[in-house]
Amino acid sequence: MIAYLIRRILYAIPILIGVNLLTFALFFVVNTPDDMARMQLGVKRVTQEAIDKWKQQRGYDKPLLLNSAADGADKLTDTIFWKKSASMFVFDFGYSDDGRSIGREIAKRMGPSLTIAIPTFLVGLAVYISFALLMTLFRATVLDMAGVALCVLLMSISGLFYIIGGQFVVSKLWHLVPISGYAGGADSFKFVVLPILIGIAGGIGSSSRWYRTIFLEEIGKDYVRTARAKGLSELRVLFTHVLKNAMIPILTGVVVVIPLLFMGSLLTESFFGIPGLGSYTIDAINAQDFSVVRAMVFLGSVLYIVGLILTDISYTVVDPRVRLQ
């Protein structure tokens, strides 16, 4: 397994270089360093001299990918791509275009993102699985059909509606939690409870339907019939046997997203004023801050690869027949 993991990590390096190259190309096809400078320097009284100075101070005055004026290895290394990308492989993200340390910013914003993402993920998973098992338990009855109809309805509603509707009803009409904002420590509870509930509600439709499908597939298998024949209650059959055997397809979808929880949610964080990584990314895109955008894309790629590796490992945990070689 160790050899397998090392091999996967080594595979990740060219993938990350490719992702970096793609991000770089896409970003600079749309924006030139001059555009970035103008965006940062504002609208009024911006001279070409100021733009050139801004680029020079931040290293955007170099060629993009190939420095034909340089000698030897400098042809590749004395370029914007190299200067901005090489250090990221040791997780040195450098500074944003407004001069702040990106690493510190990420570390600071990760907490608020996780405060919402982890409970939403864990409680959500429990709710989705329970709801799916419930529908499976009452399969082919009115309750099951009503549950499926509810899922389709919930899936059809935009996530924004849940947010605005939730804020309107829970915060504005009932005055139960603040509409938006954030505080650290235990004080965070009243700020995050609504985003968490909305996050869970927003995922019920699609997740529960998917899990229901998995459970229905399992429930027709021979081992379930055997369990029933042994006299086990339906609840016990479902929660002990079916759930366990349905874990592989569930894990495939679930484990891979665990590392991405760090990245936060763009919409939720923006509407609830949560100072997380989601809002950091969207702000950077709006401000055309390439330094932050490439750092966040790189981090997302790394976390996704970690998620895939964790998924592989989790197979060996839930299914002893699986061996990583």
Binding site: Q167, K172, I179, S180, S270, F271, F272, G273, P275, S279
Partner: peptide, 18 residues
């Protein structure tokens, strides 16, 4: 000064006196 990126929460918090 609280960061309020969206107008809807800003407006509602104003109406609530916050």
């Amino acid at each position: 000064f609280s960061l309020e990126k969206e107008t809807i929460p800003y407006w509602n918090k104003f109406l609530q006196g916050y």
